[in-house]
């Protein structure tokens, strides 16, 4: 990690530096297009809005409306075609690939629709994975992993492989992995999309608790209105624009 990237991340993590308006994500004139052979396909068109700290935001809209693309851009796994994204007052659109990788480790927690756990690692090792990219000692890592697995209610399943867990339990492990680095933002792409009703409710309850009790900012893409109801606010997308 170079000094420049260190500074950006430190700045990004320093919540005290946030402007008085308490904005954690500021999206300014953001556009994103993909190219399929010779054709440019616009996915996001000149989007601008702010997300306050501690927000639980649901992004909704039909397939292809650009909500997942926006989530990927905020999470720093994709680059905008135009416009800027400030996260904690740092313009992540200016970061290089290596800087972004370090930034993601420290600032973003990912929750995926299909959990994306590493099948050959057990629950403990899956949760520990992002911590291997930090300077924490083995003992510190263990304390953190045990703490978050306790928060998601899976302290008795640490040695279980993903195959030995139900869908809901796997998503809990994924949530534990997302919060273990104590990130600024949690981005969740259809976190209940692969779960039955009961498990989906449990996961939404857990996300609500993380938001309310640990003050985590959560940005969630969902098609499920019941899941969206649990969020503080909902933004609808249609054809790459906010509707």
């Amino acid at each position: 990690m170079n000094a420049n990237s260190d500074n950006l991340i430190q700045q990004s993590q320093n919540v005290e530096n946030v402007e008085s308006n308490n904005t954690i994500v500021s999206i300014q004139s953001l556009s994103k297009s993909y190219w399929r052979e010779k054709f440019e396909i616009p996915v996001l068109k000149n989007i601008s809005f702010d997300i306050p700290k501690g927000e639980f935001l649901a992004l909704m809209g039909p397939s292809g409306s650009g909500k997942t693309t926006l989530l990927n851009l905020i999470a720093g796994i994709d680059k905008p075609s135009d416009g800027k994204i400030f996260v904690n007052n740092v313009d992540i659109s200016l970061m290089g690939e290596s800087q972004l990788a370090n930034w993601r480790t420290n600032c973003i927690g990912f929750i995926f629709q299909f959990y994306n756990l590493i099948p050959v690692l057990n629950a403990y090792e899956n949760v520990e994975l992002p911590l291997l990219l930090t300077k924490l000692s083995k003992k510190e890592r263990r304390e953190r992993v045990e703490l978050v697995l306790n928060i998601v209610g899976l302290s008795d399943r640490m040695d279980h492989s993903p195959k030995q867990l139900s869908g809901g339990q796997q998503q809990r492990v994924a949530i534990a992995r997302a919060i273990v680095t104590d990130p600024l933002l949690i981005v969740a792409d259809e976190p209940t999309g692969d779960l039955d009703k009961h498990s989906a409710e449990e996961i939404m309850l857990l996300l609500q608790e993380l938001n309310a009790e640990l003050n985590k900012t959560i940005i969630m893409v969902t098609h499920d209105p019941r899941a969206a109801e649990k969020a503080h606010s909902i933004r609808h997308f249609d054809k790459g624009e906010l509707s």
Partner: peptide
């Protein structure tokens, strides 16, 4: 997908 996940978590190329 594992590779994509590892990269998203911050593991480099």
């Amino acid at each position: 997908v594992e590779i994509g996940t590892l990269r998203a978590l911050g593991f480099k190329r």
